[in-house]
Design a protein around this nucleic acid. Structure first.
Lengths: 350, 350
DNA sequence: CATTTGATCTGTAACGTTACAGATTTACCG
DNA sequence: CGGTAAATCTGTAACGTTACAGATCAAATG
């Protein structure tokens, strides 16, 4: 009656479009007797489409299980509905990636966004994947990790005005979204804990120096030492990404030496394990000759060595925060409002 | 001379397409004075394009840094150049995913394929992501894990003729590509090792029963027991995906009981850690009261407890194999030729 | 010389979507 | 009643690519 018996006067619609094929806007247009444009606009709730029409279109779309063709949308609008997670080298990809991916996925579920992994395997240049994404427009937003204080990727993406978020902070005067773990607090508290156990001579297995959080960690460490009047035992010829065997051997050597520390801070779970092994090989005992404080993400450190003072870094939650911030940035939120720092708790202070 | 000064008589080409925008076939067509079709065919080395022309087109394309627009290709041809990695629940996504992703990426680098992660977070139905991929045609191929003996996803993808590969085998009479670890051999050898240390009463922390490799593992385990005349200590109220605390407690209780085993086999690294903790809590000692054999992937187990007999499962290599098989399947290779089983070596038998 | 062949090249249409510039109808105003 | 505004709907063109069905021209054939 009201106008629902109108028939399109345009191109001929063939019923064959109802066959097994995937429904398109054309299918819905045919079924509703509307134009393709109208259907498109109705589905995105445009103001110039009648309420009743919208309802009818939505109903048919739902019944058909219509899902917009991503290639069509992308070609027409440039919107990819893709988030690119840029991954670094072996070390990282193996440890935290799984958990972080899980957190990101939790947030992306229920959005139209897909998660694409973009590792740079052979090229050691971290700019390669970022440039690729920019040049090909293959993502609406980028998640970066292994952030450095002066990060070329951050500069590049900022210049190109491509939404991104970093796991970790920078120090280059560019305001951008980030999520970070409070490694300074971790290191400071670790020193406090070791001091509370009467330890005076502390060594630290630090993150790779080029990463921003390495500096944060060392700040917290040295501030703690200063405030509590403790002494640093130098141990900077390895970092937590050295091969496990190298770390173990280094700790063993250190512990056998004349300047062996009585406290050790480890910035990753795998380092803590290697260190514990090194200590054992040296003939010393954790809890007696030395105490250890460590950050880990798997939650198993306490099972292994209950004596190790463990702090948990939740990469799943980090993934969620990163994804949330990135989506907000894509949506136009001010970068300054999308910066957060996570301070997890120690295993024994829940 | 020879014809390179020919000028297209078709649509007008505007120089503005040389501006900052991303180059397309049209750009190359304009620069070379050829038609868009010719450029397209030249770049894919079609037989009806002259050798000199191809060279010229390739040169210009390279200089411009031309990369085909994926949306355009996908819309026209249906080819997505996407591989979907379907991930399961928390447990799995966290442990092996990182390494497997790394292996997959190694193979995908240098191909036009992107890797998209498709976890099913909230829905517990494993068919959801697979149906989504099929219905939306969002990938050229699928990698499945957590394979079950009678796997609905395998049946579905086979019916729809969508290339896929499974991590793990099925037992449903469907021939499909897979890569698997030889868990039967692992379990059998684990029994042998424990027997060699004089152990007689063996318990096993098995994988979740619904997964195919759980059956393989138990076959190897029981065949080993039979062949060597050992006894099974029942321990099937937990599996390696139970919460770590539950596993630890279960092992502790078992070890305190009257029927405590003198040998324990663990099918994952995290289980081995939990078990070692449970044993310690029970007051018993690995290497004295009981021996442990375990499969792990991180390579750290020996650092922790050198007494544990450790076998390594290489998920990075598994990722490589899965990707290789899938690409071959997409390329049309016979599924029967794309089945492989990995038999890693024990840490002490390199 | 007319014709065929082969080697190269080409325009058109279509994939599914949306921006744009109307078109149509109804309601309202003076 | 003419005119205009508002509400609702529409076709066309374009995004970049490739399948298809020619078109062009020189060389070979009859």
């Amino acid at each position: 009656m009201s106008g629902s018996d109108r028939v399109s006067a345009g191109k001929v619609h063939t019923p064959q479009m109802l066959d097994g094929e995937r429904p398109t806007l054309k299918t819905i247009a045919y079924l509703t007797g509307l134009g393709v444009t109208t259907v498109s606009r109705a589905l995105k709730d445009a103001p110039d489409i009648g309420a009743e029409t919208k309802e009818r279109v939505r109903l048919v779309a739902r019944q058909l299980g219509y899902q917009p063709n991503r290639a069509g949308v992308r070609l027409r609008t440039g919107k990819t509905n893709v988030i690119a997670l840029v991954l670094g080298m072996d070390a990282e990809i193996m440890s935290m990636t799984g958990r972080m991916v899980y957190g990101i996925s939790q947030v992306l579920t229920g959005t139209p966004y897909h998660l694409v992994l973009t590792p740079h395997i052979n090229s050691s240049d971290p700019m390669v994947p970022v440039r690729y994404i920019a040049d090909t427009g293959s993502a609406d937003g980028v998640i970066l990790s292994r952030t450095e204080p002066d990060d070329a990727r951050v500069r590049f993406l900022t210049e190109r005005n491509i939404p991104f978020v970093t796991h970790g902070r920078t120090a280059m005067g560019v305001i951008h979204p980030y999520h970070d773990f409070d490694n300074e607090a971790f290191a400071y508290k670790a020193v406090e804990r070791l001091a509370a156990r009467g330890r005076r001579r502390i060594a630290i297995m630090r993150p790779p120096t080029q990463l921003t959080y390495s500096g944060h960690t060392m700040n917290g460490f040295r501030n703690g030492l200063r405030d509590l009047g403790l002494e640093e035992v130098p141990f900077d010829w390895i970092d937590i990404e050295s091969p496990a065997a190298v770390q173990k051997d280094a700790v063993e050597t250190l512990m056998r030496g004349p300047d062996a520390p009585d406290g050790l801070i480890c910035c990753s779970g795998s380092s803590a394990i290697a260190a514990a092994a090194g200590i054992a090989f040296s003939g010393k005992t954790i809890g007696r000759d030395i105490d250890m404080a460590a950050k880990e993400s798997a939650g198993v450190l306490p099972w292994f060595q209950p004596q190790i003072i463990a702090m948990n870094e939740d990469f799943t939650s980090a993934g969620r925060e990163l994804a949330r911030a990135l989506l907000a940035r894509i949506g136009g939120t001010d970068p300054a409002a999308l910066q957060s720092i996570d301070m997890s708790t120690w295993a024994d202070e829940a």
